[in-house]
């Protein structure tokens, strides 16, 4: 057993070293992009999708829920930031964390739906997102700008918003890393695999899944707020676009739900592929992207990282 414990420690050191090394390298690389005139929009959205997919992983990969209405958090974050900044004159650096908290508040409002399972939860979540969108669309124009939305005027600061996005992505990745190694993370994985058995083992299922739900709501709300700041405009059509949910799910699944690295890799590969197809094959890009997704799901149903770990189980110990 002592030999086994020493071996475990060595494996954990290798695993942590690789992961934190990768995080550090990514941080340095991304941080230098504005200074070296890199493709700011591409990397901004890459970080945004890495954050979205990783946050989605908390409620889906770790806990086993599939919120088809995930975009509600993104949209509420975008509008909270725009209203606070444009209408109330709150500095954007204060508006963004408040936007994150608005998402958490919305998640608490929806918390009762966590009693539902599978497709029932998924459909209810989609319906709630549509309701939130309709409520915002029908609010007085002085507040939400009606169907035209809100323009933030001269408040756009692409480079600053780029760095805030970088910080948010790192915060999301560190949160998921902590979760994966924490007892809460273990409780969530047990709930994902069999919630009744988890409950029979003494896990307080409602409390654990509520924590996951709140955590996974904070980051998309921040993303919505930061994107509003970056693009300078918010409207219900784009802030509550169901494609945001679809892309988040596809990117996270492509990499592998339930692992820390999976959604990161999935988002990086899919965003890169999307950009590549768009540049090289502008008329066929959606067809090619759709084909890539179908092939991926067909041949790697657990995503890239998940399937690799299934094929070579020894990798599980080395991949976060």
């Amino acid at each position: 057993m002592a030999i086994s414990a020493a071996s475990e420690e060595r494996v954990a050191a290798i695993r942590n070293g690789m992961w934190y090394g990768l995080l550090l390298a990514l941080t340095v690389w991304f941080a230098l992009i504005p200074a070296f005139g890199g493709n700011l929009p591409f990397f901004f959205y890459l970080m945004l999708w890495v954050t979205m997919a990783s946050a989605f992983n908390i409620i889906s990969g770790f806990t086993g829920y599939m919120p088809f209405g995930y975009v509600a958090f993104y949209g509420i974050g975008a509008f909270t930031t725009a209203i606070l900044t444009k209408k109330l004159g709150v500095p954007v650096y204060f508006s963004l964390p408040i936007a994150g908290l608005a998402g958490v508040a919305l998640s608490l409002l929806f918390a009762k739906t966590l009693k539902l399972n599978g497709i029932y939860f998924a459909i209810t979540s989609l319906a709630l997102a549509i309701i939130v969108r309709l409520v915002i669309t029908n609010m007085p124009e002085e507040i939400t700008g009606g169907s035209f939305g809100i323009s933030l005027g001269s408040r756009a600061e692409p480079v600053k918003s780029f760095y805030v996005m970088l910080g948010t992505m790192l915060a999301a990745l560190l949160t998921v890393t902590w979760l994966a190694r924490s007892r809460l993370g273990m409780a969530l994985k047990a709930i994902r695999d069999d919630s009744e058995a988890a409950e029979a083992m003494g896990i307080n299922v409602p409390r654990a899944r509520l924590k996951a739900w709140m955590m996974s709501a904070f980051f998309p709300s921040m993303c919505g707020g930061i994107e509003a700041w970056y693009t300078n405009v918010v409207d219900t059509g784009t802030a509550f676009d169901v494609l945001i949910t679809a892309k988040t799910i596809i990117y996270a699944m492509a990499g592998g739900l339930g692992t820390v690295t999976g959604p990161v890799l999935g988002a990086v590969i899919m965003v890169w592929l999307d950009d590549l197809f768009w540049q090289r094959f502008p008329l066929l890009n959606l067809f090619l992207l759709g084909t890539a997704i179908v092939l991926l799901i067909q041949f790697m149903p657990r995503g890239i990282v998940g399937s690799l770990m299934q094929r070579w189980p020894k990798l599980r110990r080395y991949i976060m």
Partner: peptide
């Protein structure tokens, strides 16, 4: 069982 967790993790879920 918790099918996508290791055997050690399956046991640890009881002592969280």
């Amino acid at each position: 069982l918790f099918h996508r967790m290791t055997l050690v993790e399956n046991l640890l879920t009881t002592v969280l």
